[in-house]
């Protein structure tokens, strides 16, 4: 049975492609997390994921002292507060890497670079323009053109011998470039390496705007792709720290903010 004296805090990150929920306890430790495809209703997916966490932890809704929502679907979710994922991301990363000064996040339709001050506050950030180049969506489209699963891209990139060049920054035009490389008989690993280099180049350019200060943490689902990780590290000329679960860090930040805003003396019954 649940312990009635403990309090728990929920962070919900409804992203453009994936929804993430994280539960932390009074000591700010992650005690459960879940992720799912956002699809048509991020709110429903988030509610279902949150319910699954409660079942897993044998808790009831009353045990959750506060909820903070973030991500593109944040306003749809009935939370105590909604916050931008930039603020949440910085907070989550500070919890995991307290020496981090730069966060590079590549999500479904955003890539962003956040400069973090000691304490996890944001000092500056830049994001991609209204364009999917340099985002997770870009990789998904390219994986589709190559008929491989997006999860396989990282492994394939490592097998490349002579990486292709993808020069177009437009996702649609880059896809046709990929198709012409396929037609020219280039190998999948070489094309995938080119795709990863292209994403890394976009994000490296974004990083140049805010400046790069170590430690540099790379988050978002794309941080699981070794091809992009290696290409980005090489282009930036720096080591990248990657959380064990790089896609849930904004949800973690949201959960930590939930802990901050929860009424301290509210009895949990």
């Amino acid at each position: 049975m649940s312990k009635p004296v403990s309090k728990f805090y929920l962070g919900v990150d409804i992203g453009s492609l994936t929804t993430k929920v994280v539960m932390v306890d009074e000591e700010s430790r992650i005690i459960a997390r879940a992720t799912g495809r956002t699809g048509f209703s991020g709110r429903e997916v988030a509610s279902r994921l949150a319910a699954s966490l409660l079942i897993e932890l044998q808790l009831s809704e009353k045990d959750v002292a506060a909820t903070v929502a973030t991500g593109y679907g944040r306003v749809t979710f009935p939370a105590d507060r909604e916050m931008s994922e930039i603020t949440c991301q910085a907070r989550g990363i500070y919890q995991l890497f307290n020496k981090a000064e730069t966060v590079i996040d590549i999500g479904g339709q955003d890539s962003k670079v956040i400069k973090v001050l000691p304490g996890g506050k944001v000092s500056d950030f830049t994001m991609n323009d209204k364009c999917a180049a340099g985002t997770g969506r870009f990789l998904e489209v390219m994986a589709g053109a190559l008929e491989v699963d997006v999860k396989e891209l990282g492994g394939l990139a490592e097998e490349a011998s002579d990486s292709c060049s993808i020069s177009s920054i437009c996702t649609v035009f880059a896809e046709s470039e990929v198709i012409s490389h396929i037609a020219a008989g280039r190998t999948k690993p070489d094309i995938v390496a080119g795709v990863c280099n292209s994403v890394a180049a976009r994000v490296a350019a974004l990083t140049a705007r805010t400046g790069l200060a170590p430690d540099v943490v790379f988050t978002g689902g794309v941080a699981r792709n070794k091809g992009v990780v290696n290409a980005l590290a090489a282009q930036l000329g720096t080591r990248l720290l990657i959380p064990d679960e790089p896609e849930i860090t904004a949800a973690l930040g949201a959960a930590l903010f939930a802990r901050d805003i929860a009424p301290k003396n509210k009895p949990c019954v």
Binding site: Y72, M83, E85, I86, T87, D110, K121, V122, S123, F125
Partner: peptide, 27 residues
């Protein structure tokens, strides 16, 4: 920095702009 256009509304992406504005105010 907010990317937009003075008159051509087709260039304005509401959600990304709102997101940046909110993050900026939170900062």
């Amino acid at each position: 920095m907010v990317e937009a256009d003075m008159a051509d509304s087709r260039v304005f992406a509401n959600e990304p702009v709102k997101n940046r504005v909110q993050a900026f105010i939170e900062t």
